[in-house]
Design a protein around this nucleic acid. Structure first.
Lengths: 351, 351
DNA sequence: TTGAAAGCGCTAACAC
DNA sequence: GTGTTAGCGCTTTCAA
């Protein structure tokens, strides 16, 4: 930043005191500084427009008051609320956030390296529920670097992590359908066969399974559509399902769709096929994107406490940042909340 | 980051060379270093797991390779693609991004202060098209700090800025309706009366006006609904419009909705009222959120090149970062692209 | 209460 | 080619 930098020395000179006195005043170590000199310092600071150099300070304090936010795939809208939650708690604590998106593990490792050389004080890792290898995270943890991980399956109890109760979400979404009398309940699942696996997809699917199982219900395999969490995928999966009209197993009376993005396009596919929701077919899903309340019909869904995840993560990190190390490695699972809207109706034989 | 830090001196010692040699090797000033010593240095670096301290380097180079991203309201999904665009160009250039959200001007000024003391090399400001006062930006500019501003109206030609052609978007969206034979074209506008003003809302509205004016069309004032860019707002505005059924001016045959969020709820409101889109009423809008292609019916809209805005901003900033200062303060206006989908049909007297 | 001075880890003259 | 050394701007003993 161009301009001749104004340093603490300039201030000291201007105020006719020593640099250490200036430093003391500026850092609130006022106790041992005379009121007169303090005033003089403050005046000089003001007059000169002095702006302390945080870099220089970081150098000697060996702390930067900065945390690295490593994002496994930034191209996801939930990024925003999560960051919001993180900022909400990190900002007041005086911390800054440095961003680094890292689409894969190699880049993640690379990002960690870079950020560490930047001397960040800690990390938050946010991923798309993908079960990447995490040896590097274990190592990082062993080195005593504070960090917390959001939405990633690491089967490692000494790393603090925030998860959503995906299985519970799938379960409850299905349970809701069951409670309405539906028994012919299909699913359009997320990428449950991906490798590395996608935890959310697998868990939501399992939740659906468990709910059905509890009621002793089995469904024809054709009613299980594996898709990919995208609009296009949801649309196509629905078309697949609709072809069963002519098939012996027939159509389900309800669909559990693994995320709200697909659910939106499921609605569209159903509409395009002339089926009415919820009269002809009910739909539940997971994820409560802002649009979910304004689809036609509005989606009954389980909302992920996204911003809360950011808050929790930051909170735990802060703990580790201040108390030198994460006290008790927490594994927090956040419950999803049901949002009952218009896409479901009680089961009845064809209208 | 705990652990005894390994410094460049340790490496020098281990390799039996001087620190400056190590520094040269590490910074690619290889020309003047013998191959033998270079190897020894590299080996020592590897063996010791040396990680250069970027903070120390920044201190002497007076550069941090970091840019501050100041976000006027982080709670907006377009944040993600914009960041994506920014990272796309800043990352390869070796720059990091420090985040700071600042909901209002006071906090923005504060954020700038903090980031400057953090020694960021430059800034990108991203706002919601709100015409905040910007004296502080002019000052920043005068101090020679490189920065660029996205989506904000500052009537100041020496500050590089990226804008979207909002007026053009409104114009073309309306023009499309006109070309389909519509003349009874209503608008659900954004917050055009806000203070400080919202540029996008005003411009889109003006685009609508201009298109009608060009065709010598005037509309009853009841057909102009001022709303707020939200789902709720869009829904309510539509209900207002629908009350005109009983009114002497009657219903329009088409609506230009100022953003896609409102458009989604307009669709819903119309559906709830038993009106079919596009058979009974056509809808165009601005903004092409991912969901816009999957509403029922899919929205005909003008898409903002969002990621491109991020890219352009970063590109221009990079210019200023490397060439000491922004060469020629650019004001780039990005054109919006029409996405023709299902929400419009040719005008015809009531079906 | 105040100040002098020793670094924090690195780069870049400048000397050899 | 290679090494010595003077800072970058700040905090923090330690003395006075």
């Amino acid at each position: 930043m161009r301009r001749k930098l104004i340093t603490i020395r300039d201030v000291a000179e201007h105020a006719g005191v020593s640099v250490s006195t200036v430093s003391h005043v500026l850092n609130g170590n006022d106790h041992h500084v005379g009121a007169v000199k303090r005033e003089r310092v403050l005046a000089a600071v003001d007059k000169l427009g002095y702006r302390p150099n945080a870099i220089a300070r970081s150098m000697v304090k060996r702390k930067t008051a900065t945390v690295g936010l490593v994002w496994t795939e930034i191209d996801n809208p939930i990024f925003v609320p999560v960051i919001l939650g993180i900022e909400e708690v990190l900002r007041p604590a005086g911390y800054h956030i440095v961003l680094a998106s890292a689409p894969d593990v190699v880049q993640e490792i690379q990002a960690i390296e870079t950020l560490r050389s930047q001397q960040v004080d800690g990390f938050i890792f946010m991923s798309l529920s993908i079960c990447y290898p995490f040896d590097h995270l274990v190592r990082l943890n062993n080195e005593g670097v504070p960090f917390v991980v959001i939405n990633r399956c690491l089967d490692e109890s000494t790393i603090p992590q925030i998860l959503w109760d995906e299985r519970g979400a799938g379960y409850e979404a299905t349970q809701h359908l069951l409670s309405l009398g539906h028994t012919r309940i299909s699913t359009i699942s997320g990428p449950i066969h991906d490798s590395p696996p996608r935890r959310s997809a697998i868990e939501r699917h399992r939740g659906w399974q468990e709910a059905l199982h509890e009621h002793g219900i089995t469904v024809p395999p054709e009613w299980i559509q594996i898709s990919d969490y995208t609009y296009e995928g949801g649309y196509q999966a629905t078309q697949q399902l609709l072809e069963l009209r002519a098939h012996e197993c027939g159509l389900p009376s309800a669909i559990f769709v693994a995320n709200d993005v697909m659910a939106a396009s499921v609605l569209k596919a159903l509409y395009d096929a002339g089926l009415r929701v919820p009269q002809d077919i009910s739909v539940t899903t997971v994820g409560d994107s802002p649009f979910a309340a304004y689809t036609v019909p509005a989606l009954t869904t389980l909302s992920l406490p996204v911003q809360e995840a950011g808050r929790e993560a930051a909170q735990i990190l802060l703990e580790g940042l201040t108390h030198g190390k994460s006290t008790n490695a927490a594994k927090i699972t956040l419950k999803c909340r049901a949002q009952l809207r218009e896409s479901c109706s009680p089961y009845h034989t064809t209208t």
